[in-house]
């Protein structure tokens, strides 16, 4: 299964490396959202520090959702989906491969969006590194897992890519709250308060990871 997942992962990676469609669109959109926030809130005259964590996550979630929505669409358009379904690949391997690809894409988006946000919103980037990375990783995992699950679901819908955010964002409420609050605490130096929130995010991550793997059979055969 791990070998199958790896093969599918490298396949998606090769497609992405040749076209760079998704990663370019996502990173650029994150940048555009950031600039739009800049116009809307005017960082030169307002202190954006209290809402900074929220702005960062909204950027990442909006840009991320756009890319994740496409994660299965590639297969459908090129009809690879049928081929994968016919081959003796474990459905769990397909989900794992997609999780890895989407995770990598989100990592790139964050590498672009987070440093840019700090500098464009004039927020001093002084924070303890380890808790910061932990918060980023766990929150991103929650978004990644539920986003990938729902993008597999939306594959079966008419206008699925359009409807995806409608399903995804209400589901993400715990992650949005947890990510914003814990990142805010880490940035203001209250690391202990951040750990209380990580409890909820970890519960969410575990639940949706388990659900994705358990439902992978059902997601596939419809």
């Amino acid at each position: 299964m791990i070998r199958d997942a790896w093969v599918l992962f490298t396949k998606d990676l090769v497609i992405e490396a040749r076209t760079r469609e998704r990663v370019a669109a996502m990173a650029l959109f994150a940048f555009i959202v950031l600039v739009t926030f800049g116009f809307a809130f005017d960082p030169a005259r307002t202190d954006l520090r209290p809402v900074f964590a929220g702005l960062v996550w909204v950027e990442i979630f909006l840009a991320g959702q756009m890319g994740i929505a496409r994660s299965f669409a590639v297969e459908r358009e090129t009809d690879v989906l049928t081929a994968i379904r016919l081959s003796p690949v474990d459905p769990m391997a397909v989900i794992c491969a997609k999780l890895m690809v989407n995770g990598l894409l989100l990592l790139v988006v964050e590498a672009v969006a987070v440093p840019l946000s700090f500098s464009l919103f004039h927020v001093p980037a002084r924070f303890p590194l380890a808790p910061f990375l932990l918060v980023m990783a766990l929150t991103t995992l929650g978004f990644l897992v539920s986003g990938t699950l729902l993008s597999a679901v939306s594959l079966h819908l008419r206008m699925g890519e359009l409807l995806l955010p409608l399903f995804l964002f209400p589901l993400l409420v715990p992650v949005i709250l947890g990510g914003v609050e814990s990142l805010g605490f880490v940035l203001s130096g209250h690391v202990d308060a951040a750990y209380g929130w990580l409890r909820i995010i970890v519960a969410y991550d575990a639940l949706f990871l388990a659900l994705s793997l358990w439902l992978s059979d059902s997601l596939w055969e419809v």
Partner: peptide
Amino acid sequence: VAFLDVPIVFEAVTWW
């Protein structure tokens, strides 16, 4: 999926 999400939403918002 939605049903299992609800307790976590409640927990998160209560924490809030």
